[in-house]
């Protein structure tokens, strides 16, 4: 482990920079987001055309603003056009799996761009990097599923139930004598679970970075490297990811507020929200990869040059970074 500790926030911004200078990538992703989203939205839109468009005079706040809706209209509509809603829901389910798998590809692209192709901002380089690392990362995705299962099992399974039973009769929050106590118990469990998922997500990103950074093809070895790295540098990882999530939440809040103040049409959210989230997620992934890579660069050997990155490639910091230029 390199004793050099790159600053987490600076690395995050470096990662965001990696994403920001690749507009062709994020525009493509935005396009995909719209395209996939339309598979869900189209049946709903069509159904609304048939059921609502010729109907007005609801006598309540109109739908036009996209803000307010009489509940009975929603109820009648969803009930009477169940098939459209079922179709939309059914369309989404495989898209979620597809998103997850595409997410692997995209992560590979971002990490490759951050670690091995800083100068080339083109789509081709992004996609070729993504393709180059896709299969090890796919194996990693499968390994990740096991860890998701483990986390879920720990928190919601017998282990979590045992912990709850130490505080509540039979582990049942409904049997707490106080509602506040029950809420606390329940919420702590939920937050703990969310943190567990976040940790797995970080480990996955670190393992992906390890795949690219070390040129490894072994998912398990990369995952173990990620765990090792996490143990040493978890505050930095956590800070970086947390800062990234805060930025993302801030972006969403800003856009929503702006659209209210400026009375922007609803469809503008379908462009502005995802674009920011794609960028910031790309930034987080790239930032974490940069952090991993910079921290695992071997220190200078006496009389020699560092062996990393392999195969004579340029290191990610060779062109300079937020925390300085290597000697």
């Amino acid at each position: 482990m390199n004793p050099q500790k790159p600053p987490a926030i600076g690395t995050l911004f470096a990662g965001i920079g990696v994403a920001l200078v690749r507009p062709r990538v994020w525009l493509l992703l935005l396009g995909l987001s719209l395209l996939f989203g339309l598979a869900v939205a189209t049946p709903v839109h069509q159904s609304a055309l048939e059921q609502l468009a010729s109907t007005s005079n609801f006598g309540d706040d109109p739908l036009r603003s996209g803000q307010s809706m009489p509940r009975w209209v929603l109820d009648d509509w969803t009930r009477l056009h169940q098939s459209a809603f079922a179709a939309a829901s059914a369309a989404l389910a495989p898209l979620l799996l597809l998103s997850s798998l595409l997410g692997v590809l995209i992560s590979a692209g971002w990490i490759h761009a951050a670690l091995r192709g800083r100068e080339d901002h083109g789509l081709k380089q992004f996609l070729s990097g993504a393709g180059q690392h896709f299969f090890p990362m796919l194996r990693l995705w499968v390994v990740g599923l096991a860890f998701y299962w483990l986390t879920t099992w720990l928190v919601w399974g017998p282990a979590g139930d045992w912990v709850m039973s130490q505080f509540f009769p039979a582990g049942d929050v409904d049997r707490a004598t106080s509602e506040s106590r029950a809420l606390w118990g329940q919420n702590i469990r939920i937050v703990f679970y969310a943190l567990g998922l976040l940790k797995i997500e970080m480990l996955m990103d670190l393992a992906r970075a390890a795949v690219v950074s070390n040129g490894s093809r072994s998912a398990l070895a990369s995952f173990l490297r990620a765990i090792r790295f996490w143990i040493w540098r978890w505050p930095s990882c956590f800070l970086l990811v947390l800062a990234g999530l805060i930025l993302e939440a801030g972006w969403i809040a800003l856009i929503v507020r702006l659209s209210q103040i400026l009375d922007l049409p609803l469809w503008t959210l379908a462009l502005s929200v995802p674009v920011g989230r794609i960028l910031l997620r790309g930034g987080r992934t790239s930032g974490l990869a940069l952090l991993y890579h910079a921290s695992t660069l071997p220190g200078p050997k006496p009389g020699g040059i560092g062996v990393h990155p392999p195969k004579g490639m340029k290191g990610p910091l060779d062109e300079g970074s937020a925390w300085g230029t290597p000697a």
Binding site: L38, V40, S47, A53, V273
Partner: peptide, 17 residues
């Protein structure tokens, strides 16, 4: 009306994905 409903569904799907 239909457009607003469709965009709502789009935003929701985008968030999920």
């Amino acid at each position: 009306l239909a457009f607003q409903a469709g965009v709502r569904a789009l935003l929701w799907a985008q968030a999920m994905m």
